[in-house]
Nucleic acid binder design. Sequence first.
DNA 1: GCAGCTATTTAGAACGTTCCAAATCATCAC
DNA 2: GTGATGATTTGGAACGTTCTAAATAGCTGC
Lengths: 334, 334
Amino acid sequence: MKRKRVTLEQVARAAGVSRATVSLVVRKSPLVAEATREKVECVMADMDYVRDLGAARMRSNLSRTVGVIVPNLVNSFFTEFLAGVETVMGEEDRVVLLANSQDDSARQDTILQRFRGHGVDGVILCPAAGTAEDLPRRMREWELPLVQSLREISAGSSDYAGADYIEGTRLAVRHLVDQGHRRIAFLSDKTATSARSERLAGFNAALIETHAENAGTVETELTWCGAMQTARDVLALPAAPTAILCFNDILAAGLMSGLRQNGVEPGVDLAVMGLDDLPLAQLTHPALSSIAMMPDQIGMAAARQLARRLAQPDAEISRTIITPRIVIRSSTGC
Amino acid sequence: MKRKRVTLEQVARAAGVSRATVSLVVRKSPLVAEATREKVECVMADMDYVRDLGAARMRSNLSRTVGVIVPNLVNSFFTEFLAGVETVMGEEDRVVLLANSQDDSARQDTILQRFRGHGVDGVILCPAAGTAEDLPRRMREWELPLVQSLREISAGSSDYAGADYIEGTRLAVRHLVDQGHRRIAFLSDKTATSARSERLAGFNAALIETHAENAGTVETELTWCGAMQTARDVLALPAAPTAILCFNDILAAGLMSGLRQNGVEPGVDLAVMGLDDLPLAQLTHPALSSIAMMPDQIGMAAARQLARRLAQPDAEISRTIITPRIVIRSSTGC
DNA sequence: GCAGCTATTTAGAACGTTCCAAATCATCAC
DNA sequence: GTGATGATTTGGAACGTTCTAAATAGCTGC
């Protein structure tokens, strides 16, 4: 009934060599004579042979498969990151198993078990909020190579690729101060992640450096809608900020809409600055000043770090930190 | 050196039963006695047993793995689609292998071979521009179940999930005509896909129905930047359109920026309408009227269709067509 | 106490690959 | 020729599951 897949054995028989030789050809081993290789490759093409990587992994323990877990597939920060990872993995003839943790650490655990079952060679993880501190250690016990990215649980416990959020936030604050602002507020995300705490830390550090005033922080859901609704909270801040820095561009865009609804013109009455420089920053009105974190670059870096780790399991732990760039548009009154 | 993974055999020994029994427990077979099941499950938890799905597939030929190929990971139309697919697959305890064809059919072929090698149970494909007509047939030969989605090669040759682009475009044209526009132009993508031809067909059909005038079509790269630069071409159309419908919201957003650079106020001097209702449609200035195609719904539908196909390989070919909804904002002068 | 059930369990052979150690082949120096 | 050397090739044993068919256990009715 069901036609079976072509096997090494069959190719071997057709080419008049042994299974082992064909296996060597498949793996491009230099051990096999040029003439034999050509003959075998020819037969393989003829018979439409496809190597069964599942069976291969069973024996050799490398699956050419990596797992990637992101907390969100709607935010383009993560999809650009994902695109970067996929590009590099594709070049290396690896396949990406994708999963969305929805920022839920229990779900993330389930996914990791699933990945383990599928025998991934390694995992690139953007840890969900609330991820247990000892996850990197546990994964080491499982002998499952890990690269953390964009966010980090228990710093230094695994390879990591990210952007210098602290420096990025500092660039943003400096820009606002240069524009003459002295009372600056922060519109923050609610979820507790390293990305959030670094951005807040950068904000506070930069305020001290520039002797500007912290006009307070407002928290909101990480959605366009949520930010829109907090516009009135921002306007109600007792310190009456003249500029507001947002956790990311999505919040900034939502905030700007909300401000306008309240009769406040962003970029004129109140400066608004985003972080991440998502594509949407070009589209808002006024166009949003932001800090480019280059998530696609981070994704590529993470993929390369994992590749390195797989090649050299005992290499020392590495960190790649992308230096952000400021992108000035009109929402900060230029 | 390397600690091996816990195997069925070891669990069996520890629990004092046979390998076969443990296998039955793992697969939740009703054949095993309640007492035995509990004992074995307990031991499995203790030993941190993880089933090796690679080995399982080898024998049983189901890998709980599906491949998904999209042409682009930056356009949120595709990432929302992907999110929909991933959600449903996750619920069914399946894993998604993700790849980006970059709208290159040769790359797409490579990816399919790679997926084949990994033994995916089936594939959800948004075919790249230039995909060979006979791909669905070839995949049937490979016994690789296929669901096409968002775009379609050789209609009716496989399951399909998509939106009614023709009806969507018609809704858009009707709206413009209702607003009093009689000369309407179309800003089109260049890549030859079914999505493009359906949208164009819907445009032309609706013009005929409403006795409005086709003010010409302009082609551009499918990027924000490309569309911005074609603003002058649009303005140079001899028929002097009063409204322009765009292949998607990205083009519409770019066009609006370009128009304003040329001193034309979108939504006032010239109505602009998008398609897809991406999140960015809310952010542009003026906010963009568009047609919601609900790609996340399509993704979920595609995933369910594939699941059905895997359960019943000989079921008749099915199509799921989502009915689009119009979303009126201010870019069409309301 | 035994035949005839049904409910459970099991040994052993796959599945398609890679690894290992050994076998074969060709070449060359003597 | 012969032995040694290096270059290719190869048979069989893994890898961790599931499948098949058959074995065993636990009942029932007589």
